[in-house]
């Protein structure tokens, strides 16, 4: 109980929110919009999981939103050029991995601070895309939306992919040695090195994985409508980071797990629609989002202070 206080308290807050919705706005639980919302959120969850790995490793990445847009548009253009969908999928994942590798090389190889590296790649990707695409939507051919399957099947695949990523990461972080390496490097890189782990390689790998997951997420998002908006992914990095920290992953590295991330993500993802259902005026959105983030971390801070006394 004590060990998982943060995960449990966030889950508690989520349940409380859902309960009050069940009482005041039962429409929230209508199956169709609920499934649509989950499917729309699934790609963001995949990115958040990748960010969680990077933060566990005591790094950060704020370029994912821009990379997400670059992958989406590239995959979209390939699909629009009538190439088979698997080609677009592979290209998107590869491109994401390459983008992640660039961040990883500069961070782990050259030794630059990740927040600065990804700040630079964030504007570079975003403005590069603006220069080439100029904001024009990419219209996809028929047969791309929902992978050419009926909607329910497509939604199933998208949600299934997110679940698979979540389970795989949960398993790897808990039971595989590479997963434990991530915690080790995040807790103390020098100690990890002395223990025979290669911190640079682990850090590099984590960035590449985040990039690849971003590319995958881009495809999972792409198939949900017949068009790609090149502005997509704006602010995605902040949403993902907020979900990760609310979910109890410590920015000082080495502490947290994906289940907490899932809880934090769902809590934040539910708030905005909940406000619509509860008929709260839209100009409260951002203040409430900010207050929830602060409450989550303050609660944790207060508790730790008590424990330390």
């Amino acid at each position: 109980m004590k060990r998982h206080f943060r995960e449990l308290s966030v889950t508690g807050a989520l349940l409380l929110l859902l309960l009050s919705l069940a009482i005041f706005a039962p429409n929230f639980f209508e199956p169709q919009p609920l499934l649509s919302r989950l499917t729309a959120a699934a790609p963001k969850l995949v990115v958040a999981c990748g960010i969680a790995l990077v933060i566990l490793c005591r790094q950060i990445d704020i370029s994912v939103g821009s990379l997400f847009a670059v992958c989406s548009v590239s995959a979209g253009l390939l699909a629009a050029a009538k190439l088979p969908l698997p080609v677009a999928v592979i290209a998107s994942v590869t491109l994401g991995a390459v983008g992640g590798a660039l961040n990883g090389a500069l961070v782990a190889g050259v030794g630059l601070p990740s927040i600065v590296v990804t700040l630079a790649t964030m504007v570079t990707w975003r403005e590069g895309l603006r220069l080439t695409q100029q904001g024009v939507f990419v219209n996809l051919p028929d047969g791309v939306q929902w992978f050419g399957l009926p909607m329910a099947a497509g939604q199933g695949i998208v949600c299934g992919l997110a679940l698979a990523v979540l389970l795989a990461l949960a398993y790897a972080l808990r039971f595989l040695s590479v997963g434990r390496f991530v915690y080790a490097v995040g807790s103390d890189a020098e100690a990890a090195r002395l223990a025979g782990i290669r911190p640079r390689l682990v850090t590099f790998g984590v960035f590449v994985l985040l990039g690849a997951l971003t590319g995958l997420a881009a495809v999972m998002n792409l198939v949900q409508s017949p068009q790609v908006d090149p502005g997509t992914g704006r602010m995605l990095e902040l949403e993902a980071i907020a979900a990760v920290v609310v979910g109890g992953v410590a920015v000082s590295g080495g502490r947290g797990n994906v289940w907490g991330v899932l809880a934090g993500f769902l809590l934040l993802a539910c708030i905005t629609p909940a406000l619509t259902y509860l008929d709260v005026k839209p100009y409260w959105d951002k203040a409430i989002q900010g207050a929830v983030i602060l409450l989550a971390i303050v609660a944790d801070g207060v508790r730790r202070r008590k424990l330390n006394r």
């Binding site: 920290v245 409260w284 959105d285 951002k286 203040a287 900010g290 602060l294 801070g301």
Partner: peptide, 29 residues
């Protein structure tokens, strides 16, 4: 929040980043 509760500045100010902008919007609608 940063010094009193020893919370990481990145996270605290990520929260107030939303909160301050949100208050500005709430005040002016």
């Amino acid at each position: 929040l940063i010094t009193g509760l020893r919370l990481p500045p990145l996270i605290v100010t990520l929260g107030t980043y939303s909160l301050f902008r949100g208050l500005a919007e709430a005040i002016t609608h």
